[in-house]
């Protein structure tokens, strides 16, 4: 652009300006949702990722029905089945397609149950963090002034620490357990949502429909939650998806380090940690398969999130 001096001709810009005139005449025939769906599926990668993600979630939900063993039920776990390679026959006469871990848990079953925990922790902490971050960010943008300054400085402070560090400190303080890890993840994440919502709410707040709502005598709460909030959801969904992937990875990290979930409720992180000591003795499967499951889950969530961002961000529109 800069070397191609002749600035009065910028070709791409010229055609970009041509577009609005078309938009004006081409009264939209499709609903926004239909357009959203068709644009989302324009990318084959995103379609594959969404399909994978749905399959993973369904498998995790149906885990008790489609696995041969309940890895949490100590009665079903036989220590004699420990560290069997993939395809071995278990004592209870089923094939361990992915082998077993050191405690004799069928890895296939353990991975699906682990996914349940990982997804549940990731999504629950995400939802709670969204609810908190959204309200705080919305309040900051709407009220402005000192309230906004205080809230945003806290957010800045929080964001200047790595999320992993914050979560690690909290878990170390609180101890093990699902509820504690969710709490730690919420604390580590809410600030991202607060900042995202505040950013888009600031833009929305300055629009005329908000002034109109005010001049109609509607309450502040109604203007904030019924008028401004629905228009801030698009970036929130995008950040939410990607943050959920982060939360899952973070939980796995904490569990891997041994400060997350207890051995009796193995999440993917715990499974990977358990197998780690056997890696060098050639029993790769104990760590690698849970690791792969984690990788596929996180990558597919991120791919879906990327596509959501492309479709929902008007500035990237062609």
């Amino acid at each position: 652009m800069s070397t191609e001096a002749t600035p009065n001709l910028a070709g791409a810009d010229g055609a970009a300006q041509a577009a609005p005139e078309l938009a004006e005449t081409g009264a939209v025939v499709e609903t926004p949702f239909k357009r959203f769906v068709s644009e989302f599926f324009e990318s084959r990668v995103a379609m594959g990722a969404l399909f994978t993600l749905v399959a993973i979630i369904v498998a995790a939900i149906l885990a008790p029905l489609i696995t041969p063993q309940d890895p949490y039920d100590l009665g079903q776990v036989d220590i004699m089945d420990g560290r069997l390679p993939p395809g071995s026959e278990a004592f209870a006469e089923y094939t361990m397609v992915l082998g077993s871990d050191g405690a004799g848990r069928d890895l296939y079953s353990a991975i699906l149950y682990g996914l349940r925990i990982s997804l549940a922790v990731g999504i629950t902490s995400g939802l709670i963090a969204i609810a908190i971050g959204m309200s705080v960010g919305l309040l900051a943008a709407y009220v402005g002034g000192r309230v906004e300054a205080i809230i945003m400085r806290i957010v800045d402070l929080q964001l200047s620490f790595p999320a992993a560090l914050v979560a690690l400190m909290l878990v170390a303080l609180l101890g093990k357990g699902i509820d504690k890890i969710i709490l730690a993840l919420v604390v580590a994440q809410w600030a991202y949502y607060a900042r995202t919502v505040r950013g888009s709410a600031l833009v929305e707040r300055s629009k005329e429909y908000v002034e109109a709502a005010a001049s109609l005598g509607l309450s502040h709460a109604r203007i904030m939650f019924r008028h401004i909030l629905p228009n801030c959801l698009a970036p929130l969904i995008v950040v939410g998806t990607i943050q959920t992937a982060h939360a899952i990875a973070l939980e796995a990290t904490l569990s891997f380090l041994g400060v997350g979930l207890p051995q009796t409720e193995p999440s993917l992180g715990v499974l990977i940690a358990n197998g780690f000591e056997y890696m060098l003795s050639g029993k790769y499967w104990i760590s690698v398969f849970p690791g792969l499951a984690l990788l596929i889950t996180i990558v597919s969530i991120n791919l879906v999130g990327d596509q959501l961002r492309d479709v929902l961000n008007p500035r990237l529109k062609r």
Binding site: L9, G11, G14, A15, Q17, A18, E21, L22
Partner: peptide, 21 residues
């Protein structure tokens, strides 16, 4: 008026019509 094609006419002369146009 808007949508009458007046600007597109100008852009066409300059060869600044991009796909899908």
């Amino acid at each position: 008026e808007s949508g009458s094609g007046k600007s597109i006419t100008g852009f066409s002369i300059l060869g600044l019509i991009d796909p899908p146009g």
